[in-house]
Structures are given as structure tokens and as C-alpha cells.
């Protein structure tokens, strides 16, 4: 039967095989090279500007004296607020979708909506946040804000939030909420159904099952997801730029209503200037930023390795 066709020489097929391997290896090498060159070029530019005073000084018009105290503290504040909001809400949403919601149209719609949200450009979230947090949709005038507490103390709130660090943190929580939800959902899905059935068979209510069985099993994976979401948040600049993060600041946040800037914004500010000296300190700030990120990732990896016990024999 097979004698009809024209034989394809095995050498030709082997050659294609080799070419494929060469192409794949080439692409992988290119990817790794790009990463190395990126890190190396930043390190070469920025290493000389790194010092203790760089971390503990405010910005300055003279690059040699400039530091990143404001953006560093700002990033911490914004990130903490963002984590406090996005992680619980994200986990709650994931629990509702995975453990409570029936497979209905509504659930499919919410799910589709979440995946669509994760594709929305972050700068668009900035626009929403500016309207919602910055201006309360125009319901309260910024010239005549509602105030609560002592403006110089720690406990001070006013509506609308304006360009405050609280507005910044809430903005970022909008950006990472879909990512957090999806990560938490995946963690919950990885818990074997047999564990849930065992809990229900002992007569536990749905919430008792979630709280005592599902959540503890899913926690390590969830925390990894949370940390990776936070590392996305700490690198975001565009939405904060819209909400009103300040490019040049000489103070650190004292309460939720303080002005703020973050590391990526400071980097953007310095990188955008024509003078090479500012590029140097931008690179130094990038090194600090990458170090923070690496620490985040390291924690995520440790959690993954240490806490992740097998859930099934």
C-alpha cells in the first residue's frame, strides 16, 4: 500500500529536526541574554550611587545628594493599604465563587467579568480611582472636604481622599484585585474534593468546612499568589500617576491623608530627565526596587517549599 508515495528522505527530516532544536535553543538563549543585559546595564549604571544616605535622604535638585526616603516609605504605605484591602476581598470573592455560588449564568458572568478586569490597562483603573476616591464622583467638593480627626495626628480622614496615600493604596487594590481573585481560586481548586466531602459528611456547615478544612489547605498557595500580586502592585506607576502621586516630595507619609510618591514614580521622574547623573540615580533606585521584589519572590518561594504539604497521599 505504502509504495505509492514518494519517500521523504530521512536525512531531510533529521535536518528539520536539528533546525527546530537550533531555533528553540536560540530563542531561549536570546531571552536569557536579554534578562542578563537588562540587569547588568542597570547594575553598572546604578551601583556607584548606592549608599546608606541614598536610602535615607529626601530628593534633591542635585543628583549627588538625592535620596529615595520618600518614595521608599510611600511604596511601603501604599503596599500595606493595598494588601489590607485586596487580599481579604480577593480571598472572599474566590471563596464565594468556588465554594458557594452554583454553576449559574450569574457565576459565569462574574467569572468572565473578572478575567476581563485583569485585561484592563492599569491606567484606566487610575481614571476610575481619580473619579471615585479622588473626587467621590463629584458628590463632595474638594474645596469643602468632610474631615474627621486631627489633621496632624495619625487618625485623620477626609472625604474625598484627594491625592492621599489612602487613595493610592485603594487604587492599587483595584488593579490587583482580579489577579488576587484568580490566584485564590486556583488555590481553592487545588484542594481535593474528598477533603470537602469528608468535612460535610461529619455534619459541618458550609462555612465550617471552608474555615476549618478548605482554607487551611489552600493557604500556602494563596499566600504565594498574594505575594506575587503584591509584587505587581509595588511596581505599578501609571494608575498612581493619574490619581496624583507626586513626582517630587520632601516628606514621608504621616497619616492616611498625606501626600505620597512611590519608587516607580521616582524612577520615572529621574529617568525622564536628560542629564546622565539623574539616570545614574534612577538606576540606583531601580536596584533598590528590584531588591525589594526579589525579597518578595524569595518569601513566596520559601512559603511554597516549606508550607506546601501534600494534600493527598
Amino acid at each position: 500500500m505504502t509504495t505509492i508515495g514518494q519517500e521523504i528522505p530521512i536525512a531531510t527530516r533529521r535536518r528539520k529536526d536539528k533546525l527546530m532544536l537550533a531555533a528553540c535553543l536560540g530563542a531561549t538563549t536570546l531571552a536569557v541574554t536579554v534578562l542578563s543585559v537588562l540587569l547588568l546595564s542597570i547594575f553598572v549604571q546604578g551601583a556607584s550611587s548606592l549608599s546608606w544616605s541614598f536610602l535615607t535622604s529626601f530628593a534633591s535638585r542635585k543628583p549627588a545628594q538625592a535620596g529615595i526616603l520618600s518614595p521608599l516609605m510611600g511604596s511601603l504605605w501604599v503596599c500595606a493599604i493595598c494588601a489590607l484591602v485586596a487580599i481579604p476581598v480577593g480571598i472572599a470573592t474566590a471563596i464565594y465563587l468556588e465554594e458557594y455560588a452554583r454553576r449559574s449564568r450569574l457565576r459565569n458572568f462574574i467569572q468572565l467579568n473578572i478575567s476581563n478586569l485583569s485585561g484592563v490597562p492599569s491606567i484606566v483603573y487610575g481614571i476610575l480611582a481619580l473619579a471615585a476616591f479622588g473626587r467621590c464622583f463629584g458628590a463632595i467638593s474638594a474645596d469643602d472636604p468632610l474631615s474627621l480627626g486631627d489633621p496632624d495626628g495619625f487618625f485623620y480622614l477626609q472625604l474625598p481622599f484627594g491625592r492621599s496615600v489612602l487613595a493610592g493604596g485603594l487604587t492599587l487594590s483595584l488593579v490587583i484585585l482580579p489577579i488576587m481573585i484568580i490566584a485564590a481560586q486556583e488555590a481553592l481548586r487545588a484542594v481535593p474534593p474528598s477533603l470537602r466531602q469528608a468535612a460535610l459528611a461529619l455534619g459541618s456547615t458550609r462555612w465550617q468546612m471552608v474555615w476549618k478544612v478548605t482554607l487551611p489547605s489552600a493557604m500556602p498557595t494563596m499566600m504565594t499568589g498574594a505575594i506575587l500580586s503584591m509584587s505587581r502592585a509595588i511596581g505599578e506607576a501609571a494608575p498612581l500617576l493619574v490619581v496624583g502621586g507626586v513626582l517630587l516630595l520632601f516628606s514621608v507619609p504621616e497619616n492616611l491623608m498625606s501626600d505620597f510618591t512611590v519608587l516607580p514614580l521616582q524612577i520615572y521622574n529621574w529617568a525622564g530627565r536628560p542629564q546622565a547623573e539623574f539616570h545614574k540615580i534612577a538606576a540606583a533606585a531601580i536596584i533598590v526596587q528590584l531588591a525589594v521584589l526579589l525579597a518578595f519572590n524569595a518569601v513566596a518561594i520559601i512559603i511554597r517549599r516549606k508550607l506546601q504539604r501534600p494534600l493527598q497521599s
Partner: peptide, 16 residues
């Protein structure tokens, strides 16, 4: 690591 690098860093890389 590449995925975690903030985008402003890539902008800086393009520029410099």
C-alpha cells in the same frame, strides 16, 4: 524575575 520587573524599568532600559 523578568515578569516581576516593573515596567518603568523597561522604559529606562529602552532609553539608556
Amino acid at each position: 524575575i523578568l515578569a516581576g520587573v516593573p515596567t518603568v524599568v523597561y522604559g529606562f532600559f529602552a532609553l539608556t
